[in-house]
Design a protein around this nucleic acid. Structure first.
Lengths: 343, 343
DNA sequence: AATAGTATTGCAAATGTTTTCATAAATTCG
DNA sequence: CGAATTTATGAAAACATTTGCAATACTATT
């Protein structure tokens, strides 16, 4: 009983209780095969009795891994990333790691600060979203030789290992789908590309694909909205009430597309008859709106899961090999797109 | 230069570079006022030059706080919790803490495992969702004397400090709203209440309120669906295609309500004319669907923010006082409810 | 039965900090 | 100007582990 009051249950308390040396207790945890079954049992009983919990801080000080991985995302509160975080978390948990999570709100200076903070905690690796980061962040990672991973984007020449999708391709596929349906007057709603290379890649690809067809988007049909249903709805509302209306809307992601869909509905427009809408992402819920959202699927869950698996492998390997994984994007045709009416 | 190769930049390397003792370096960080501006400058320059980053693992070993707080949620991938996580994360970040995050998928045994894992990392506190936890978890918290917090639920006699809302009240308000509109034939779609005391409180309150009016829900108008738009849509679809249809649907939360809304729309039912729908939660996006979802607002962001603030105060205080904070729920009337047609 | 080998355990050093105590230097005051 | 403070710094112990090395006990071999 008296042992409990102390609250100081450490490895030597366990050793004392089991009448062995601290070394042996430590070994029972780290190299069970080196200690005889009999003493192991004694020790486990003592551990049980005292409610001992291993101290990873002390372990970490010995150059052992801390067992944590830091993940820095632009924002948590978003279908987009929530799904990746969940999958990543589950995946690294399976490998025995814990997740340190932080968000930076699309501010790359804050991203730097978060990475630094994680470094103080001696994370075994940092995962970042996207391939665009501040000079300082890159230097920090380089200098500290901390395993780092880029999630969400794929690039064949990325410096960091990466697990993601080709956002440019996603943009192109979306465009081609609308073009194939005969749309020539296409409106665009995208977020700011500042500090968001995913959006950047998508929109450049869209413009490229459009250019190839000799189509350019009048500036009044191009609008900016953050990843927020309500704000996107607003943006769509103003875009759709201009004198000339596009026949289709290509949206930076599914959240924006949903906003656009609701805007159209509240204006009494029939989707897809009066207006086609396509998104990018295929978030949870995109299949369920009425009508179902046509979109380019980016497999968030797969990306998160794979990222977790490969990254923990990378970290625990004694000869880590840079890897780059490209997850396929895929066109998902549902109810929000239909052929353009020939005029 | 040669210093960099080593990779071992610790406090004594800094001390050497600045030609002072390690103690002084440590003091520059922890009690800057105790060291002369001149040496402070020298040390900071050395820190800069060597790229030194403090080692919290070593600090933690000294009984200093680890600077981490563990948050265990049922699931991350959910409007419901993503918002709380975001606010909580931002809030504790402001106080200098980092977030360790894990999810258990509504499995209280996994919750226990996660708390244990966090304890190994010597978190300064654990925050859990809800007030219902396994015996083992309660014992662990009690035994290890780790500051713990219950988020999302409020109860005036909770053992743990809590920051949340009165879920029972939310259920009652939703019910009363429908009753006031004249609805007597009310359908219910709720998630399993197993390991989910939020849902449990809500549905009992709903039944209580209904009973007071002498109304009971026929079992064919009561359905179970998880917090998933698509699965809720399915459930609503089958519920709404029975011979007799309720005039209103009361849903366990907004995700379910959205599913129900889409189900109604895909059946060609006019909401709210043919069917009223009310949710609970008021998640991001609930305002933006067409028509806007009537719901009982549970202020997730406020809860997360307040929880973070109060919990970090609690942890850093030298005389922590148990606290219980009840955040107001509020009826938000939008477009999915209207008076029942008098028959 | 002596030797060599193997399995099990303990000792002590090391890990990167913080902090108490002691010491030295600088400042104030009569 | 010397004593009394005050300020600035360093030495060393402490924190909770892990691990290389040494010691012991046991087993197998000849």
């Amino acid at each position: 009983m008296s042992i409990f009051q102390k609250g100081k249950v450490d490895i030597v308390a366990v050793a004392k209780a089991a009448k062995v040396s601290p070394s042996t207790v430590s070994r029972t945890f780290n190299h069970p095969d080196l200690v005889s079954p009999a003493t192991r049992k004694k020790i486990n009983r003592a551990v049980q009795r005292l409610g001992y919990i291993r101290n990873r801080a002390a372990q970490t000080m010995h150059g052992k891994r801390s067992g944590t991985i830091g993940l820095v995302v632009p924002t948590i509160n978003h279908a987009i990333f929530a799904e990746v975080i969940q999958a990543f978390s589950d995946s690294i948990d399976k490998a025995g790691f814990s997740l340190l999570l932080a968000s930076h709100g699309y501010d790359l200076d804050r991203e730097y600060a978060m990475v630094r903070k994680f470094l103080e905690h001696r994370v075994d690796g940092v995962a970042l979203v996207g391939l665009e980061h501040s000079e300082a962040t890159a230097r920090l990672i380089e200098q500290q030789k901390i395993p780092a991973l880029a999630i969400w984007n794929y690039s064949e020449d990325s410096i960091l290992p990466c697990v993601g999708a080709d956002n440019g391709l996603a943009g192109r596929l979306a465009t081609e789908h609308l073009l194939a349906l005969g749309h020539r007057d296409i409106g665009l709603i995208f977020p700011q590309t500042n500090g968001n290379d995913r959006a950047q890649h998508r929109i450049s690809a869209v413009h490229a694909a459009l250019n190839e067809m000799g189509i350019s988007v009048p500036s009044e049909h191009e609008s900016e909205a953050p990843y927020s249903v309500s704000q996107a709805k607003q943006a769509a509302l103003t875009l759709l009430t201009k004198h000339s209306r596009p026949t289709a809307l290509l949206c930076g992601n599914d959240v924006i597309a949903q906003g656009a869909l609701f805007a159209a509905q509240s204006l009494g427009l029939k989707v897809p008859d009066d207006l086609s809408i396509i998104g990018i992402g295929d978030f949870k819920g995109s299949a369920d709106v009425e009508p179902g959202l046509t979109t380019i699927r980016i497999p968030a869950e797969t990306i998160g899961k794979l990222a977790g698996e490969r990254f923990t492998d990378f970290i625990t390997s004694d000869d880590p090999k840079l890897f780059r994984i490209c997850c396929e994007v895929e066109r998902v045709v549902r109810g929000t797109t239909s052929p353009a009416i020939v005029s």
